[in-house]
Lab assay of single mutants.
Amino acid sequence: GPGLTDLFKTEKAAVKKMAKAIMADPSKADDVYQKWADKGYTLTQLSDFLKSKTRGKYDRVYNGYMTYR
Rank of each mutant, 00 (worst) to 15 (best):
G1K: 10
K16D: 02
L46N: 00
L7T: 14
K12L: 05
A19V: 04
E11Q: 08
K53D: 12
F49K: 02
D48Q: 15
M66Y: 07
V61A: 04
K39H: 08
T10R: 14
Y58L: 03
K17A: 13
K57V: 07
T54H: 13
M23Q: 05
S47N: 10
D31Q: 11
M18Q: 14
Y58K: 00
V15I: 06
A19Q: 01
Y58R: 01
K53G: 12
D31W: 11
F8V: 09
G40V: 01
K39W: 10
R55N: 12
K20G: 06
W36M: 02
S27V: 04
D6S: 08
Q45C: 05
W36V: 00
W36G: 00
D6Y: 04
K53Y: 06
R60C: 13
K12T: 07
L46G: 00
K28E: 05
A19Y: 02
Q45L: 08
Y65A: 01
K57T: 05
D59Y: 09
G56P: 04
Y68K: 02
Q34T: 06
Y62L: 15
K12F: 04
D31A: 13
D30A: 13
T5G: 13
A24E: 09
D6F: 04
Y33V: 00
A13E: 09
Y65M: 02
L46I: 11
K53P: 07
L46Y: 01
G1E: 11
P2K: 09
K57L: 08
K16P: 01
A24I: 12
A29N: 02
T67G: 07
F49G: 02
L46C: 02
T67E: 14
K57Q: 08
A37F: 15
D31R: 10
R69Y: 09
K53M: 06
G3N: 13
Y41T: 02
G3C: 15
G40I: 01
V32C: 06
S27E: 08
A29M: 04
P2I: 10
K9E: 11
Y68V: 02
D38S: 12
D6H: 08
N63T: 10
A13R: 15
S52C: 09
M18P: 00
P2W: 03
A14C: 15
A24H: 08
R60S: 15
T54E: 11
A14V: 09
D31K: 10
I22A: 07
D59L: 12
K28A: 08
V32G: 03
Y58P: 01
Y62K: 13
E11G: 03
L43M: 10
Q34Y: 05
Y58I: 02
V32Q: 03
Y58C: 02
Y62I: 15
Q45M: 13
T44L: 12
M18D: 15
G64Q: 03
P26H: 06
Y41M: 09
Y41W: 04
K12Y: 04
R69E: 04
T5C: 15
K35F: 13
A13M: 10
T67S: 13
